[in-house]
Structure formats: C-alpha cells, structure tokens
Design a protein around this nucleic acid. Structure first.
Lengths: 321, 321
DNA sequence: GAGTGGTCTAGACCACTGT
DNA sequence: CAGTGGTCTAGACCACTCC
C-alpha cells in the first residue's frame, strides 16, 4: 500500500476538515464555563460539536482529545491511572502517533494528564482548589505579631491558608544580597544598585496535588540588617511570619497592595510547581507599605494556575441616609 | 540522498538531545521572572542556556523559538510585522516545517505572535497592561449611585478602569431568563431551578490590543423584575452601573467577594478575547451581598490573561500601643 | 492560482525508565 | 533489554486569503 493509497482510504470515514463556522452559528453566546472545584470547568474546552445528525467537523486529534477527556472526567480513567501508550492509542484510534501526540498535548494543557519520559502518561487528580484568603490573612498575621512567641510558633501563614499541618510541608529558603535592578528599584523606591536582601522561598509537599508555591521577596538591605537574625535563611520559617520579622526592626505595616497576573511558567517554575509548560501560573506582586509610607518589601508569589484560587473581599461603606 | 543519510549528516552540527541536568545544576535557584509591563516578563521562558563555551542542549525548535523571541522583544521584528512563512523559516533554518511549527507554537503560547490561516503570522504588539483596580472601583461605583443622572452618564465603570472614552468601545449585552443550575443555585443561595436573569456582556474595541472583557452575570429573577427596565438588554449600559441598577429595586450593597482563577479559554472565549488557545484567561467570580446578607448577584468575569492585571489594596488596622 | 497556516502520515533516532 | 515519551524529517492534502 502506497502512501497515497492509504490517504485516500482514510478519506471515506474521516472528513478531517470542517467547512468552518458551525461553532459560532450554533452557539452565538458562549456558555458560562463554570468555575467549579473539580474537572467541571473543562466541560466546553473541546469546542462546539455539531447537532444530532451533524458530522463532527473538528480535527480528529481534537475528537480523540475529547473522547479521552470524557473518560477522565467521568471517572472511567481514574486519577493515577496509566494511560495507554502513544503507540497503543495510535493503533486503536487509527491515527498516526503525531496526531495522538497532538491530542495528548491538549489533555496536558487542560491539566488532565502528566507525561513522564520513559515511564508513561498518567491521569492527574482533579484540581483541589486552594483558597488564598489574602485580605483577611494579612490582618490575621498582623494581629498575631504582638502575641507570645509560643502562641505564634504553633501555626504559620501557609497552614492558615491550606489547612495542612507543619509536618505535611517541606520548606525551603535561600537568602542572597543583591543590587537592585531597574524593576526592583522602581518597585521599592530606591536607587538602582542599592543593596537588597533577596529571599527565595518555596514550599512543597509529598501529597499528590498539594498546593505549591514559590516566592521571591526583596527588602532594602539596610532595613533588615538591624536584626542579623533576619539575614539568616536557617532561621526560616520565622515564627510569626513576615510582619513579625519587620516588627523586630521597628516596622509597622499600614497597607499591602497586590497585583495579580497570569503568565506562562518558566521551565524552572513548571518543574517545581508540577505543572505542564502550557499551563499558566498565577502571580501576585505584593507590595508592603509601612505607616511612614515607605515601601518595605516587594514579593512576587508564583502559584500553579490550575490549582489556585485567590479570594478577596471588599467591604463597602454605608450610604448616608 | 536517502533519509538515513540525511539524518546522519544532520547529527554533526546538531546534537539535538541534551544529557540532562544543566538547567538545574547551573541555576539551582530560579530567577525572578520580572512582572513588567511589556515583553519583559518573557525573558527566561526559553529555559536555561549553557555557559559561554557550552553547547546549547535545548531542542532545536526551542532554539529557533528563542532566536525569534529575541528578534521580537528587541524590536528587530516590530509589532504588526508579517513573519517569514513557515516554509521560508524551514528553508533558512534548515529545519523541517514540523519543527518550525513547534517553534511558532511556543511564540504563540508566549503571546508574541498571532497566526491567521491563509494570511500569515504577525508579530503582536506588546501587552498593554490593563489595571483593574477592583477594590477602589466598587466604592467609587457605590458613591456615584446617589449622584444626578447627568453626572452618572458621563463616565461608566469600564472607562474608569481603562481610561478609554465611550466612543472607543463597542458594547454588547444579551439577557435571558434561565433556571438555576446546581452551581448557580449554590452561589446565589437559591433553590435549583429557581428563575434567574442571565446577562451576558462583552466589550470590544477597534484598537489593537485594547482591553477586552466578557462577563456572565446572574441575578434572582424576582428581585430585578420589580423594575422592568432591568430586564431590557437595550437599556445597557445602565447609567451608573450595576449598583445603581440594584438601587432601583431597593438594594444597597454591603460587600463584594471576588474569587480569582486562571484557566485555559474555551474556543469561543479565545476568539472573542483575541488570544491563542494555550494562553490562559483570568477569571473573577464576583459575589455581591447586600446589607441584609442576601446574595443579589453572581458574575463571572473573563479577561485575557496576557493583558490583564488585577490590583487589590489591603489597608491594615493600627496596633494599639 | 499562488501562497499561507492547519491537519495528517509513516518512519526514524534519541534519552529516559523500568526489568 | 524493551518500552515510553521527546524530537525530527519529508511529504501530502486541506481550507483559507488575496490577487
């Protein structure tokens, strides 16, 4: 069988290319993609399928991706399951391995599976949404500062967010002294080249799907140098958190600003946070301002976009009647 | 020249596969990916390159992607420029078209280029960050409610966010009466099946890179039916915004909760928001609670993840000294 | 009709993981 | 060692856009 023969036999059952438009015509107003806590929000990611007697005009790799998505979200392929190998899927689906790989790339971008070289492709567990209640968390942290150390040690900020105990988490910290680049100089309102303390943290967990986070924090070096303990990474995690650290050098916070963005992960971040490149990270740039109006810390927090949920609450003032 | 011949000649200059590890060994602590306002934040997306005399072990399609990224971020390939065609890139780079397409897929996921079938691939303009200052916006909106209509008409909420005037924006609204599904029933604290007013909005602009947004809003039908004007999509945009609409049926808001998430776009959303599938959207689920504790509106707002920046500010209470 | 990006194939070599 | 996913090639047909 020549290559040309094979292609023409395929054309009968296939019809791989759609004449465009049904997606919009059938469904002019996009459905609301529910922001659920499990696989729910992936319902409509595959695109619009044509009506009852209509043909499925989507490319075949997307059809395969959709088939597999249904098997996963329905539970037929349970979390942790080893998927059929690409070669096997190619055989059973009648597609080439390239097309099978295209389908699997979709599943990976949807966060449904993870591929491991040499081992196979595994079904991920549904995303366990982690709420980061930032607004109330900062006040809670501030209130704790003036408590006894014994009291502060008991639980830290990460546990407050996640409900996990200290034993579940591995904690990494690394401190360096750096010079402010243009970006940081502007953010911290210091001269470019000014000495900064750079702190890189990350938390990890043995639990599947546990929340992971990494953050890059910058403080004016002179500010923290007043307490040598603050320069020592081995003293982390500090009992009482960031705000208590600043308290030891005479700083009281007045305001915390946060800028939330989404962007693709760097390769390093993808590995550490256990996400596919292609799945976005959520980033929060946290700027802490003290009661004298100084910027005392700028921190970039990076979180896996498919597992994180940030919660903010805005209280409004009453009307004067 | 047979296929095998060709491959062996390629092996001399190529060495496409890396012996693993340098990325981690050379750079154990990930760099802080700057959250800049232009192309800046894409600096390290290509991964770690080996040292001065070292080889570049990354796959060749990533090397090509990196070369093109540099040309774009440096301005050599200006925004709006038509990129060389895939065939041309394949010829000049010595790679196959498949590999070239892999490289271009990277550029698309980074939001650097947009491909248009039949036309070509164009360099996108740098993302113009749009700040949505949600916290202060809601209070601003509430304060406006009691002003004269003439005053309220002048500017709406979208203009407040973006600085664009009304003329720059096209506004779409579509209202329907629906029954609450399980998700919405829970969010609105009503019985499943209860009648809801569903409002779908989107704003668009003729300007390149203008901010786009779409939102799905749900309110208890009985609540809004008290003012028939609120059921009429042609009355949108309402002068004075959501909070003034609710004011006409006797509702004063007390609190607005927001849940921020990132997820891949549906095909519809990708088209409307002008992003590549592969670029995440930022979503905000906005829950409005009135002064009697009722949930009066739940809205899901969807924004392009590569162009949106959400800003929150948290004021802290002073310590009692 | 020529050129573009989107889909698809058949087949190859590689690094990596298990046994 | 066999099997897996990651990379790569050469070549094909398609729908689409523009002239």
């Amino acid at each position: 069988m020549t290559a040309t023969d094979r292609r023409s036999t395929r054309r009968a059952p296939a019809a791989a290319h759609r004449p465009r438009l049904p997606a919009v015509a059938v469904d002019p107003v996009p459905e609301r993609p529910a922001g659920g806590t499990t696989w729910q929000s992936l319902e409509r990611l595959g695109g619009t399928v044509t009506g009852v007697h209509g043909r499925d005009w989507r490319p075949r790799y997307l059809q395969l991706a959709e088939e597999l998505r249904v098997k996963i979200t329905s539970g037929e392929l349970a979390p942790g399951t080893l998927m059929p190998s690409e070669t096997e899927l190619a055989d059973t689906s009648g597609l080439s391995r390239t097309s099978v790989r295209n389908a699997i790339r979709q599943l990976r971008e949807w966060g449904l599976v993870r591929a491991e070289q040499g081992r196979g492709t595994y079904v991920r567990a549904p995303r366990q949404r982690v709420r980061r209640r930032n607004a109330e968390r900062y006040q809670w942290e501030k209130d704790r500062v003036l408590l006894d150390e014994e009291e502060r040690v008991k639980t830290g900020a990460t546990e407050h967010d996640t409900g996990l105990t200290v034993d579940d988490l591995k904690f990494h910290a690394e401190f360096t002294r750096v010079k402010a680049d243009a970006d940081m100089a502007a953010a911290l309102q210091v001269e470019p080249g000014a000495p900064l303390l750079r702190r890189v943290y990350w938390t990890s967990s043995r639990h599947e799907n546990a929340p992971l986070t990494m953050s890059y924090s910058y403080l004016p070096y002179d500010l923290v140098a007043a307490n040598p303990d603050l320069l020592d990474a081995s003293k982390e995690p500090w009992p009482g958190g960031s705000q208590h650290q600043l308290y030891t050098v005479g700083v009281e916070l007045d305001r915390i600003d946060e800028e939330v963005r989404a962007r693709p992960p760097s390769p390093d971040e993808a590995e550490l946070l256990d996400i596919d490149p292609g799945v976005s990270v959520l980033t929060v740039r946290k700027t802490s301002i003290d009661t004298t109006g100084r910027v005392v810390e700028v921190a970039d927090v990076v979180m896996p976009g498919d597992r994180t949920e940030l919660v903010y609450s805005h209280k409004l003032q009453r009307w004067k009647t």
